Amino acid sequence: MKTNTEVLQIAKRTLEAEVEGISGLAERINNDFYVIIERILSLKGRVVVTGVGKSALIAQKIVATFNSTGTPSVFMHAADAVHGDLGIIQKDDLVICISKSGNTSEIKILVPLLKHGGNTLVGMVGDKESYLARQADYVLDTTVEKEACPLNLAPTTSTTAQLVMGDILAVCLLECRSFSSEDFAKFHPGGSLGKRLYLKVSDLYINNEKPEVPPHASVKEVIIGITRDRLGATVVVNKGTIEGIITDGDIRRMMEKYDSVHGLEAKDIMSKSPRKIESSELAVNALELMRSNNITQLIVADNGEYKGVVHLHDLLKEGII
């Protein structure tokens, strides 16, 4: 086993090698790249991404990124293509074939079949003199000087370069399409990411009770209301107008301030000018408002009309946090 110092040196050396390999991509982005973006944007079909070995894994990730950012795509394994999967490719599709060497037997079998179909063929390749580069209509050059692997054998820097090139394509495409956060939410409806983009305060507060007391409510009535509705607070409302809020914290501060609560009313212990949020706001905005004010609940009000309360627990339950 190597020493702590040796392991850290290897880690840093590997990272530096990867960074150096990626930095070289900037010099290789040329007019072919622009034409590829132009072709994809005008496609009637999809982008079919294919590869073999580690390149196939990178192809799957690129497809996932394309699909989630508005570019319809499908993965086809190069080895399976000649056993029936060529049927995936339709006449209006564009094919991106990924290979480090561009000279593998699978690529040499696949490329003539792709060319025969008349589809635009893009080669993402690490050797501009390779078979794939020469046969492709357009080339994305992902050449790297060496792998991060000390033996210069295991695909490391080369697959990182492929991955980054895929990200570059995806980002250029989404910006050219003016792809918005609302568009992104359509493709990510599940999980915390999607909910942060589409879940609104109106989806949350309606599931809660609507706690409220009049300004002249007794302390006992206030405490009973807070306990009953289980939101840690009640809103003080006078003839439809929100005058304040009483939280668990206000109750504790009241006990510290007064020797006797006899005769105290809601208006005497409420916090005035409470934080409010409109029901149409995104739930994530409610979270930011709670965090910035160090509170756990917000009054929901539309044009001053009291609607209910949204609690930090609602956001936790939905996975927003």
Rank of each mutant, 00 (worst) to 15 (best):
N4V: 15
T5W: 04
I10Q: 14
R13Q: 14
L15E: 14
L25H: 00
A26L: 14
N30S: 13
V35T: 14
V35E: 10
I36E: 02
I40H: 03
V48W: 05
G53H: 02
A56F: 07
K61Y: 05
I62S: 01
I62T: 02
V63H: 03
A64M: 08
A64T: 09
T69H: 01
M76T: 07
H77G: 12
L94T: 09
L94R: 01
C97L: 10
C97E: 00
S99K: 01
T104W: 00
I107S: 07
I107K: 00
H116W: 08
N119L: 02
N119E: 08
G123T: 04
D127M: 03
Y131P: 05
A136T: 02
Y138H: 12
Y138W: 07
L153G: 15
P155R: 05
T156Q: 03
T157V: 04
D167Y: 08
D167Q: 10
D167P: 07
A170E: 01
L174T: 14
R177H: 09
S178N: 15
S178W: 03
S180C: 09
D183A: 05
F187D: 11
H188A: 11
P189T: 14
Y198M: 10
L199H: 05
S202D: 12
S202C: 12
D203I: 00
I206P: 10
N207I: 09
K210A: 06
A217R: 02
A217Y: 01
E221M: 06
G225K: 07
R230K: 12
V235A: 06
V237C: 07
T241C: 07
I242R: 04
D250I: 11
I251G: 06
E256L: 12
Y258W: 04
E265M: 09
E265C: 13
I269A: 10
I269Y: 03
K276W: 06
E278G: 15
E281S: 14
A286T: 03
A286Q: 00
L287C: 10
L287Q: 12
E288P: 00
N293K: 13
T296S: 14
G308E: 05
V310A: 01
V310K: 02
H311L: 11
D314H: 10
D314I: 08
L315G: 02
K317V: 15
E318R: 07
G319V: 01
